[in-house]
Amino acid sequence: MDRLENIETFVRVAQTQSFAEAARQLRISKSVVTSRVKQLEDHVGAPLFHRSTRVVRLSDVGQAFLRDCVELVGRANDILDQMRDAKDGPTGTLRVHALTGFVLGHFATLLRTFQSSFPDIHLELIVSDAVVDPVKAGVDCALQIFPAASTELVSRPLFPVRRVFCATPDYLRAHGRPASPRELHKHTLGLYSGYPTRDRWTFHHGGEQVTMYMSAALLTNSVHLLREYAMEHAGIVCLPTLVAGEAILRGELEVVLPAHQLSSFSLSAVYAGTSRNAFKLRLFIEHLTHAFSKVPPWDAAMIERGLLPPSLIWDA
């Protein structure tokens, strides 16, 4: 019995809550997954899962066993990766899920420079605004603004994601510029549907805050569609500065309510500590970390021109 393989299989079933999905990710048959878990249960002398036709959940013994197994598998994979890569250099495929708003316009240069440094690492990039659990989605990491789906996942912040309300100069000349957050209710609004705070918007100004619930004429999971909507002079939209920054700096969009600051989120790399590609993943995340300071370049340019305050307010 290969105990390490069996333990890794147990961890993957526990994380995905599915024998079939664990088999798919490990690229083995479901019967092999079942056999490995059974061997481990025989060795431990107790069931690790409660199984039904619809649900796979950990037994009390399995729950107690899991954390140490996660650490063991993660450490073992890391050591094996480093040994292999020290001899031949890092090779293989790294699968990454990334937010559309981050990828378009900012990511291609990072991919090129990473692949120049590590030409034998092949990247498979899945781009969408969906919230994913990287383990269940079968990716090595997810680049997202959402909290990690479980305490067994690692979340490493990369850079802050600021948000601003903005509109074209033509729209503001035609419809007026709101003087306070509550005046936004008088305007046609375009809002992103995927923020963790949902419909709740909190504005910070002079040490005070105003929290409002706002409805949108256009509610969408595409920040790029919101930018195009604003560019059509259709209304006031809320955009992350990484999407709106260039248009604001060119004067095509103007920040609305610049003195009323919204909270920021972190764009983070979320991944499992048991990743089979731990060494390659660490190289990739370190490459991203080195590419961004605490103030990403699109924010630095706006701060320099007085369009953004230098301080940050973080989402609670």
Rank of each mutant, 00 (worst) to 15 (best):
R173L: 03
H187M: 03
P119H: 01
Y171S: 03
P309D: 15
R305F: 13
G251V: 05
D60S: 10
H260K: 13
A291L: 08
T241M: 05
L48V: 09
S268T: 15
H290Q: 08
L262W: 14
D315M: 11
S193Y: 07
F118N: 01
P160S: 09
G92E: 14
Q39R: 15
S264Q: 14
V127S: 06
S268G: 12
P119C: 12
Y229I: 00
L125V: 08
S268I: 14
L184G: 07
K294H: 04
F10K: 02
A244D: 04
E5V: 11
G45V: 11
E304S: 12
R54Q: 06
A22E: 13
H185A: 01
V127R: 06
R95A: 12
A300S: 10
G194D: 03
D199S: 04
V70C: 11
V55W: 02
D140Q: 07
Q25E: 10
P147C: 07
L172I: 14
T188D: 14
F292T: 01
I121V: 11
E208P: 11
A269Q: 06
V295N: 09
A86K: 02
K186E: 10
L283M: 08
I7K: 13
H204S: 14
F146H: 15
E5I: 11
T211I: 05
A291D: 06
C69A: 14
A316K: 00
Y171Q: 00
P297I: 04
I285C: 10
T220M: 00
G245P: 00
D133P: 03
R67S: 15
S275R: 07
S31D: 07
L143M: 06
T220I: 00
A14R: 11
T9E: 10
L191T: 00
I248G: 04
T211P: 01
L99P: 03
L189Q: 12
E8A: 15
R36D: 13
G206S: 12
E232I: 03
L253Q: 02
C166T: 07
A23N: 03
S35Y: 12
A46K: 00
N6D: 11
F292D: 02
K294R: 05
R182G: 03
A217W: 05
H233Y: 13
A167S: 05
P296F: 14
D88C: 08
E252A: 13
L267F: 01
R250Q: 05
G138Q: 00
V255G: 02
L308K: 02
D199G: 01
G62A: 13
G245M: 06
P240Q: 02
S222N: 08
A149V: 10
M212Y: 09
I7S: 05
S150M: 09
L66K: 06
L189D: 03
Q82D: 12
E5N: 09
N6M: 14
A46D: 07
